[in-house]
Design a protein around this nucleic acid. Sequence first.
DNA 1: GAAGAGGAGATCA
DNA 2: TGATCTCCTCTTC
Length: 314
Amino acid sequence: MGNLDGGSATHPSLSVLDAGDAKPPRHLPPGAPERHPQGVYPSCFDALLSEDVAWLLKATEAPHAPQAGPEQCPIIDSQLVSPGQGCSLSPQLEEQVEEGSLEQVQTLVVGEVMKDIETACKLLNIMADPMEWSAGNVQKWVLWTEHLYRLPQVGGAFRELSGRDLCAMNEEDFRQRCLQSGDVLHAHLDIWKSATWMKARCTLEDNKISEREELWAEADSSCSGQPIHLWQFLRELLLKPHTYGRCIRWLNKEKGIFKIEDSASVARLWGLRKNRPAMNYDKLSRSIRQYYKKGIIRKPAVSQRLVYQFVHPV
DNA sequence: GAAGAGGAGATCA
DNA sequence: TGATCTCCTCTTC
């Protein structure tokens, strides 16, 4: 990360966090994205940090999603989105806006965005900064975004593009390569770019590590450069119920009992993580069964389909 | 038909 | 060499 001075806000869009009164400029022009001199991005957080929090909610909505559910709002956790409300503002959020506590709301939203991007980075084993992505990383990100928003598959539309190439493309470029979902991919990339910029600014200020992040650090071996194990990967998914609850969820967290709700999706995610495009549930379940002998995972006392149990719960 | 169980050889870091 | 991955057959739900 480039700009770590952390003290003065060097981009106008951030003044809202510092002063709370300035109206930041809205969007960048639709040309190539500006690159901050220090190597980070001033971008759509102009919108995110201004009066329109709903912009993010809208941008993260899945236009092709058939139903409301946690996966349709992967970036906004339940603190902001009430169950059954889809991506509308929760009463709590509305109240805060009415009270003029927009700054706190914005900080909350930014925090949630960053958490989810961090999660995706760990699962895909890619850098948070799109400028650092290789062509392979770009492919992973595209596949991931397709899965997350249930977009039609773009195939090789972005093949052989590096992250730098991708960042240089505007929305129209995305649409030209992928008519159906180019706009969503562009919006999603914009959020990543903006989060990178925000993270660079906030790194020195943010020393608080949430309980969940500690669990992540414990569970995630990708931080240490070690290959991730399947049981770790499953636990990572289970620790993000807002994002992956539709695929896998706890039945009894205390006992470590979980259920794979969408076997195909879990297998696809595992395949993405391990660069095994041919992964399926048959193979994944075989790997899970290998854990029986090792005493890592077992079937619960009352055996049910797609239900497994960690021998040593979190 | 999908999921579960497990054997056995291949692959990869 | 360990940890899967892959393919397979048979059984159970």
